[in-house]
Amino acid sequence: MPVYANEMPQDFLESLPFDAGNGSVEDVENSYYHLADNVKETIVTEMKSIAAKARDILLVCGVCAAAAIINKTAEDNKGRKIIEIAGVAVLLMLCLADTEAIIFQSKGAIGKIGLFSKILLPLFAMWASCAGKPLSSVFITSGAMAYTNICCILAEKLIFIYIIAYILLKIAGEVTENEISSGIADGMKSAMLFLVKACLTGVSFYMTMSGCIVSAGDSAALKTTKAAVSILPGVGTVVAEVTESVISGAAVMRNSIGVLGAISIIYFILEPFIKCFINMVVFKVISVISASFTSEMMSVAMRTIADGYSIALGMLAAVSGGIIMAIAVSVSIFGG
């Protein structure tokens, strides 16, 4: 393998969110173990935190249900309504600060991915180009970069703000029994999910199509280089051997950078992703359980918060998925 392909760029190693040593195979292997440890630790911490919160939420639901039973004998329905509104207010006080913090953390993770992609993708394109794929590397990584930029802007400026807006509007609509407010909230949710799906579908389509179109161009570029060197008399079959050696060395480097990049992106989203997922599942479960003994309004409030987490999850998956897909497409489909 050529000497140039044995040293991982230092600025890239410094930009990684974990210690990757000098980027050797053992270091990459260790980073997998660190990742697994991080997953375990985050799950345990979040489960402990959410267990206490779930207990408090169910307690509030229980108090509201008991108050509603006591109030049942009253002639008008006003007392019950006030109990429900008070219950939802207490639930929001319990949950909204944490929800906002987790959603803010997700936004931060996407910002970090945006910055990291500016180091990762040009470097990956450079080594993919050196590995004999000059055209596909430009097309695929350019697509990934434009996609990441657009997703980051959408996430930071629109979707994460609208998630909070969705939760508040939907709950306000339920409390006040206002269909317009609920309708606006549902419309926002559909629009956000549509944006996430459209982004992901668009980038998948672009990468698959550009990959098919430009792979022939790559072969032509490589043949031109080989043909140029073959003109030299006396070198014979050395050209093919040398070209293979240079390309395979660059491909190893490209793959190592790709793997480290993909692990880094998982590192960035790991904590908010696990938190969002656990919260989403727990809130959905609480919503189902509370529906059996307390008012519909409380259950809807919990379900709405769970929906907010699911949108945040979708956005995290979409942003990280785009870059990981670009790396996977470059590494696996175009091979080398």
Binding site: A125, S129, A131
Partner: peptide, 14 residues
């Protein structure tokens, strides 16, 4: 940056 990176990679290969 991507285009510059790819051009650098192509030169590096040559």
């Amino acid at each position: 940056e991507i285009k510059q990176g790819a051009a650098k990679g192509k030169e590096m290969m040559k």
